[in-house]
Design a protein around this nucleic acid. Structure first.
Lengths: 350, 350
DNA sequence: ATCTGCTATGTCAACGATGACACACCTGTC
DNA sequence: GACAGGTGTGTCATCGTTGACATAGCAGAT
C-alpha cells in the first residue's frame, strides 16, 4: 500500500491540535500537556508522519547536508576510505552527504560546485580539488570549504598528513634493514600542485624525506635510482603500469637497488608485478615499501607501507566543517601523523 | 567577499520585472521580449543568482535527488565501481546522489531509509540491502527502489548479473587449459540471502555452475576441493584471510588442486598470498581465477577473473530509477552478462 | 468598429515547517 | 481583589520558487 508521508497539518488535524503543538511535541520543547502529547504521538504513528526536511531547510536556511567533492572515487582507494569516514562522521552528527566526482576536470568540478550551492549544502569537503578557483567560488558565496589531504587554496582550511615524516619513516626502516641502494619511485614534484602556504607539493615532501633520510645515514642515492613520473594522472584510471616500467628499468641497471620505495600503494603494485614477472623474490631479493595503506594488505607479499590515517582525515575534515557551520573556532590546518605498517615485503638486505 | 546567493525576487527587482518574468527567462519558456530578457540576464549575473533547489523541491515535490544505500563502500571495491557509475549517470541526468553506508546493520539501514524519506529523495538504489524489509518500507511510502547486484525483495526492481554463466566461463577456461583438479573457494550458499523470485543466492549460482561445469567435462570434484565459508562478512572488513586458510588446507591435501577458482577477487588475494608464501608459482604450479574484476589488475600475477560490468550495473540501476520516477514502463529485472578477463594467473595444467 | 489571437507581463496561492507572538487559564501571594 | 508568574495552546508570516490565471496591448481579419 503506497501512502505518502503525512504533513504536520494532517497530524495536527487528526490530533485535534494546532501545528505549533505538534511541532512542540516533536521538538520536545515548550509546555505540552500529557493529554496533548499522547494524542499527537498517536496521530504521528497513525499517519506515518515523516518530517519534510526540504520544507524545514527552506524555513531554517540550514539543510544539514554537506557536499563531498572527490577527484573520482575509483582513482585511489584512499578516497574510498576518506569518503567512508566523512560519511560516518556526518551521519553521526545528523548530517547527510552528497557526493560529486569531478574526474580531474575543473569545468566538471565547477558544475558540481554550482549544484552544491543550488542545493544550499551547509559545507563542502574536497578530496581533492581539480582547481583551487572552484574552492574560492564556494567560499565567496559563504559556504565553508575544507580540503582533505591537500592544501591548495588560501581560503579553505585543511586536514592533511605529514608526508615528510611519513616518507622518512619508510627510508629509515629500509636503512635499518641494511639496505644501501634504495630506489625512489614517485611522482615528479614539478608537475603536481603546490600547497599555497608552504609552496611544496605532497611529492616534494616525500622526495625531500627520501634524500634527507639517505643523507642522514651517509648514503648518496644514485641518480638512476630516483624515478619520477606521472603515476597519478587525474583524468585517467590510476594504474601500476608506471611502477612496472620504472622497476624494469631499475633492475636492468648495472647496480640495481636492493629496495624500492614507491610513494603510493598503487604504484607499488606495479613494482611487485614487475619483480614477480622477472622471478625476483620479495623481500629476499628486493624489499618494497609503499605509501597510503590502501590495498597493501591484499598484495602478495603483504606490502609494508606508510599508512594514511584515512578515518581520522575524514573525521577531522567533517569536524572542521561542522565547527565552521556552527560558527565555532576552527584551526586553519590540522596535520596528522602517518604510521609505518611493517608487513612481509621488507627484509634484510641480501 | 562573502555574498549569499540572491533570490529570484531580488533579481526581479533589479531587472525591474516580476518574478514570473525572471522565471520565464531562466526556464526559457513562454513569451519574453528581448529587452526584458537582457535586463533579467544582466541582473542574474550582477546578483550572483543561483536557484534555490530547496525551495524548488518544496514547490514541485521533486528533489532531483536519489539515495544510494551501500553495504559499506570500503567492504568491496565492487561497490565503489557501482557507486561511481550511479553517480555519473545521475549527474548526467541532472540528479544528485546522497550516499548512506549501513555497514550490514538492519537498524542502521533503517535509519538511513528514514533520512532518505525525510529528504524526499525521488528514488533509492540499494547495493546491497541489509534487510529486505527496509526496502519495503520505502516502496510503501511511494518511493521507487531498485536493487543492484541482488534481488532480495518482491517489490523492488533489480539489475544483476548472470552469476551462473559467469562462473561457468571460469570453470570452462580452466578445463580447457587441461586442469582436472579444480578447487572451488567461495561462500557457503546456506548462509547467504536468497533471491526471492528464484530462491537462489549468488553463491548458489556460482557453486552450481562449478559443479555443472565439472560434470559437463566428465570431471567429478573431490569433496575436499570444495571449500565453503563466510568470506564475506557484512559487518566486518572484508579480507583475504579466509582465502589463505582454504588454500593452506587445499595444498596440504594428498592430492592438491592444480587450479583454484575463488568466487571473489578479495578471496583470491588470499589464495595468491598463501601460494606466494609456500613458494608456489602462479600459473606454472597452480592457476587461479577470481570473480568481480575489482583489484585483479593490481595483483601479482595479474589475476584472471570474471568481470562484473560495474559501469553497466550502475547505469542501468539509475536508468530504472529514472524511468520509475518519470512513470515510464520499467522492466522488473535486468540481467547483465559478465566477461572472462584472461590475465596472467592462469596457464596450462602442470 | 469589433473581434480574434498572439505577445508580454504581473499577481498570488500554494508547497510544509518553524517559531515569534499573543492569548488564556490557573495557582498562589500580598 | 489585584497581580505575578507558570502553564498550555493557537495564529500566522516567512523561507524562495513555481505556474495557473488574469490582464492588457497590438496587429490583422471581418
Amino acid at each position: 500500500m503506497v501512502s505518502k508521508a503525512a504533513t504536520l497539518l494532517e497530524v495536527a488535524r487528526l490530533a485535534g491540535v494546532s501545528t505549533a503543538t505538534v511541532n512542540r511535541v516533536l521538538k520536545q520543547q515548550g509546555y505540552i500537556s500529557d493529554d496533548a502529547r499522547q494524542r499527537v504521538l498517536a496521530a504521528v504513528a497513525a499517519t506515518n508522519y515523516r518530517p519534510n526536511v526540504v520544507a524545514r531547510g527552506l524555513r531554517t536556511q540550514h539543510t544539514y547536508t554537506i557536499g563531498l567533492m572527490l577527484t573520482a572515487i575509483t582513482v585511489n582507494p584512499l578516497f574510498v576510505g576518506v569518503a567512508h569516514a566523512v560519511e560516518a562522521a556526518a551521519i553521526a552528527a545528523g548530517y547527510r552527504v552528497v557526493i560529486f566526482n569531478h574526474g580531474g576536470s575543473p569545468s566538471h568540478e565547477r558544475h558540481g560546485i554550482e549544484t552544491f550551492i543550488a542545493q544550499r549544502v551547509d559545507a563542502v569537503l574536497f578530496c581533492t580539488t581539480a582547481s583551487p578557483e572552484n574552492v574560492e567560488i564556494l567560499v565567496e558565496s559563504g559556504i565553508p570549504a575544507i580540503e582533505i589531504e591537500r592544501s591548495l587554496t588560501e581560503t579553505a582550511r585543511s586536514v592533511r598528513v605529514d608526508n615528510y615524516v611519513g616518507a622518512r619513516a619508510a627510508v629509515d626502516h629500509l636503512v635499518s634493514l641494511g639496505h644501501r641502494h634504495i630506489a625512489f619511485v614517485g611522482g615528479d614534484p614539478a608537475i603536481y600542485p603546490r600547497d599555497l602556504a608552504r609552496q611544496r607539493s605532497v611529492e616534494d615532501d616525500r622526495l625531500a624525506a627520501y634524500r634527507d633520510g639517505m643523507a642522514a645515514h651517509g648514503l648518496q642515492p644514485m641518480p638512476e635510482h630516483v624515478r619520477l613520473g606521472t603515476y597519478y594522472d587525474l583524468d585517467a584510471e590510476i594504474s601500476g603500469t608506471e611502477g612496472q616500467q620504472h622497476t624494469n628499468a631499475l633492475m636492468a641497471l648495472p647496480e640495481p637497488p636492493t629496495a624500492i620505495f614507491a610513494t603510493c600503494d598503487i604504484l607499488a603494485t606495479g613494482v611487485l608485478q614487475s619483480l614477480y614477472r622477472m622471478g625476483k623474490r620479495v623481500p629476499q631479493d628486493v624489499s618494497v615499501v609503499g605509501f597510503d595503506d590502501t590495498i597493501a594488505a591484499y598484495l602478495a607479499p603483504e606490502l609494508t607501507t606508510v599508512a594514511q590515517p584515512m578515518t581520522a582525515l575524514g573525521r577531522h575534515g567533517f569536524d572542521m566543517a561542522l565547527a565552521a557551520i556552527e560558527g565555532r573556532e576552527v584551526p586553519n590546518e590540522i596535520v596528522l601523523e602517518t604510521s609505518l605498517v611493517i608487513r612481509n615485503s621488507t627484509g634484510p638486505a641480501p
